[in-house]
Simulated assay, not measured.
Amino acid sequence: MARAGVTPHRLTTAAADLADEVGFDAISLAALARGLGVKDASLYSHVGSLKDLRTRVTLLALAELADRLSDAVAGLAGRDALLAFATTYRRYALEHPGRYTAMQQELDPGTAAGSAAPRHGELVRAVLRGYGLADPDQTDAARLVLSTVYGFLGLEAMGGFSHHPRDLETSFVRSMDAVDHALRHWAATRTSTPAQ
């Protein structure tokens, strides 16, 4: 029997905290048990496997970030909403690198559908409606926004910007200003694709 106080939620939160400390790929049931002061075997009354635990961390991170994004963009539109969305995303990734990595893991379709992942898409689309964009332009614009944010975060995480003294916060805001400009001047979708 697991030590009193070890619940599925506490276990998942502890695993997410551990992921932030050592990296998502480095979490293990043994390390988690040590951190909680219980025997490895006692964790199996709450979690089926390491894969199950990692899925739970992914779901937790998706929900946490969705809540933060929702709070950040509430009542905002246009550039203000875009910058709030992007800045909140970046801040979460910097504060919780293990959780952020967990969110990049692919979930099976049923699990993904029941998770907070669809809320992320709904939130970016809500930001884009402030620019008057509807599908299919909205989908293209959502891909631009997310690619810009993910790309910046990926390069920042691997130290890709460390060779230059320019402040990263300023560069990030300037990048989002460029996206804002693109969204405000979005051209209607072409009906044909460019020749190869």
Rank of each mutant, 00 (worst) to 15 (best):
A16Y: 09
D167A: 10
E169V: 10
S45Y: 15
T87V: 09
T55R: 15
S70I: 04
L107C: 08
P97S: 05
Q104R: 13
A31C: 07
A112F: 09
G48F: 02
P97C: 07
A81C: 07
E122H: 10
A74D: 14
L82Q: 03
H46F: 05
T13E: 12
M158R: 15
A26C: 10
R119A: 11
L144H: 02
A31M: 11
A126V: 14
L29Q: 11
G151W: 07
Y100W: 15
H96W: 07
P118G: 01
H164E: 11
L82S: 04
R125E: 13
R190C: 07
A178E: 13
V38G: 00
L53A: 03
F152Y: 11
G98P: 08
P109V: 04
A142C: 09
R99D: 02
L123N: 08
L32M: 06
G5Q: 07
A26M: 10
A188P: 14
A195C: 10
R184P: 08
L123P: 09
T87K: 04
L153G: 03
D80L: 05
Y150A: 08
T101A: 15
D167C: 03
S49F: 08
S28R: 03
E169R: 07
D108Q: 10
S49T: 08
A113F: 11
H164Q: 12
E156D: 12
S147A: 15
D108I: 02
Q196S: 13
H9K: 12
L65E: 10
Y150E: 10
R91M: 06
S192W: 14
P8F: 01
R91H: 12
Y44S: 00
A116I: 02
L133G: 01
A187Y: 13
D180F: 02
T12A: 02
G154V: 05
A195R: 15
K51A: 15
M176C: 01
S45H: 14
A30M: 10
F172H: 02
V6D: 05
R119I: 11
